[in-house]
Computed example of a mutant assay.
Amino acid sequence: MELDITFFAFAIPAVLFAGVSKGGFGSGAAFAAAPLLALILPPAQAIGLMLPLLMIMDVTALRAFWRRWNWPVARVMMIGAVPGVVLGAGLYSVANADVLRFLIGSVAIGFVAYQLARARGWLRLEGRRPFPGAGYFWGGMAGFTSFISHAGGPPAAVYLLTRGLDKTTYQATTVLVFTAINLYKSGFYFALGIFTADTLWAGVFLVPVAFGGVFLGVWLHKVVSEKFFFGITYVFLTITGAKLIFDALT
């Protein structure tokens, strides 16, 4: 991994996306980091670079929302996430880089489709009664997609939005669930060699960017429309996802 101008030209915006989202603005935008980095790095390095930075952000957010979560809801999802993470690790161990690029690109396109469907009212989750075992199922889906590309937000939201949580409880529960999922992932990342000396060293340079992104998210929340921000994010993710799928297939 060369820490050159090209690397930082992609890595800094990627980490800023994640930090801005963790700062409470543009929830879900953190997922944009992995597809962006996967354009210039092997997928394993892209996700390996981001996980320690996301865990640092998790700790900061966890302190801010301490004990404001819904424990029964979080517990079910955290238990369900375990087999999802194991499945993700199993797939990673047998898949090549192009398969991972295709998966990251597909999840990026799917993320945009999910958000647009909700924004246009085609998909309404609030107030719906979940099926038996839904928390375990969607927790597993969140664990799997989070392992592959740090994209567990949409599956988690499908379940959390049916629970009638207020905004603060929803955010706190999300933070707790993904703090646990990222801890699960870290052990497998070490075992599978996804963490390397290069990714950890590169991450050191990006820690200030991560914190800066969190503070930027707080500021953007006050001065910029989330609709405008998401519009840019969706266009970016569509282009990036399509490019990753094209690269994987060709």
Rank of each mutant, 00 (worst) to 15 (best):
G217T: 06
F10I: 03
G153A: 14
P72F: 10
Y114H: 09
G135M: 13
S106G: 10
V73G: 00
G121K: 15
P52M: 13
A46L: 06
V204A: 12
A117F: 13
G231C: 08
S21E: 04
V107I: 14
A172S: 05
P43C: 15
F25D: 15
S225E: 11
F131L: 15
A97D: 10
A30N: 13
P35R: 12
S146R: 01
D98T: 04
K22R: 12
Y159T: 10
R68E: 14
L161A: 03
L16F: 06
L49M: 15
A197K: 13
D198R: 12
Q171W: 07
V214H: 09
A157K: 00
T240L: 07
Q45W: 09
A113W: 04
G153C: 02
P208C: 08
P83A: 05
F147L: 11
A134P: 08
G28Y: 01
D247H: 00
F228D: 15
V218P: 13
S106Y: 00
M141P: 03
A89P: 08
Q45Y: 14
A157F: 02
A18Q: 10
P130I: 12
M1D: 05
S27H: 15
W66A: 09
G105W: 08
L103H: 04
G90E: 04
F230E: 10
A248M: 07
A156K: 07
F205G: 04
T238I: 13
T145F: 08
Y234M: 07
F228A: 14
V73R: 06
R163V: 08
R101G: 01
S149T: 05
E226S: 09
G133D: 01
G26A: 14
L220C: 09
L160Q: 10
L54I: 12
R75G: 04
G231L: 15
I47T: 06
P154G: 00
A34L: 12
K222P: 13
D166N: 15
F17W: 15
F131E: 12
A202T: 03
L39F: 07
G84N: 10
R75D: 06
F228L: 14
A64T: 09
T169Y: 09
M55R: 09
S21D: 07
F144T: 06
G26E: 12
A210H: 14
T250D: 02
R124T: 14
L160E: 07
S149M: 05
W138T: 02
